[in-house]
Design a binder for these strands. Structure first.
Lengths: 162, 162
DNA sequence: CTTGCTGCAAAAGTTTTGCACACGT
DNA sequence: ACGTGTGCAAAACTTTTGCAGCAAG
């Protein structure tokens, strides 16, 4: 049977919408329909996304927020700590919903462009150890390994048989 | 007295100029005066640098390589494994001489923009452990912690006394 | 002579900005 | 009315590309 006790992880973390509202109020900014739409669009994205991609999907969904508003709102969401930049290469900006998530490391296959995300306690432990050593107060981190996946190596091998 | 035996680390690692020459030849490309100039300019940079910055310094030194050639050559140096991209944010591309260097992690102070680089054996150990777990063959990695340094926190505190 | 290289200027792509008008309090 | 937000188009920036002439094997 379903327990009547709500999941504490849900009750203790107010929905992101409230988080964003509160952040905006604190900054003297307004929670407008456009900003709500953009946050919803972000919440619908499962993983890593780009600004233009988000905009395109919103357009397809019939949402009317302009490009400028999307870019401006992504900055606010970043400031609010709801999303984070994902630095894979310097081609363009990428983002990801990270509020309340366990920080993740990434493996990027340079052959297939596949991105694997992983959680590993040793990662945050190492971060904390290094921060302590330098008197740093950590806010976020990026750990990305570039290399070849088994599939990537297989693809290369196959291609070299030409 | 000075031993007659040369340092193996030096004899075994040919100068970067030869490395680059060899790389170019292997690719059917030429080692031109422009490419040599650009490599020299890179070798003169102690740390992290940007393409336009490199170009500006070359111009000041009276070197005539064009913007297009600088950008094109940076790509070759990247392919040759002589320099690496440094991903700090998505504002622009940054590079760093990394050939033969121990891989480094970075601490970025979000208040002062100071960048501290550190070496830590646990970092590569963790990388190897994770790669093994996923069957990845590692080529490079980025480990960057964002937070506040003691100086950054002091600066914030001082600024809030207004 | 064929292949690659350079410089220039133009193009492309992403992100930001100026401005006029609109909205909520 | 005031301060903030929005859309649009233009601007700003970084990076790439097309092309004509040049250099080297």
């Amino acid at each position: 049977m379903t327990p009547a006790v709500p999941d504490p992880a849900i009750t203790l973390t107010p929905p992101l919408c409230s988080i964003f509202r509160r952040f905006l109020k604190r900054q003297g900014l307004k929670f407008t329909p456009e900003r709500a739409e953009i946050l919803e669009a972000v919440l619908r994205k499962p993983g890593i996304f780009e600004a233009e991609e988000l905009l395109a999907e919103m357009r397809q969904a019939g949402l009317r927020a302009s490009k400028a508003t999307v870019y401006r709102t992504l900055k606010h969401l970043l400031d609010a700590g709801i999303i984070s930049e994902v630095l894979i290469d310097s081609e363009r900006a990428r983002y990801q919903l990270t509020f309340g998530q366990t920080p993740k490391g990434r493996l990027v296959c340079v052959e297939t462009d596949q991105i694997i995300e992983f959680e590993n306690p040793a990662l945050t432990a190492l971060r904390d150890r290094i921060c302590k050593q330098y008197g740093f107060e950590p806010l976020s981190f990026q750990f990305t390994i570039y290399g070849t996946s088994p599939q990537g190596r297989a693809a290369v091998e196959k291609a070299s048989k030409d």
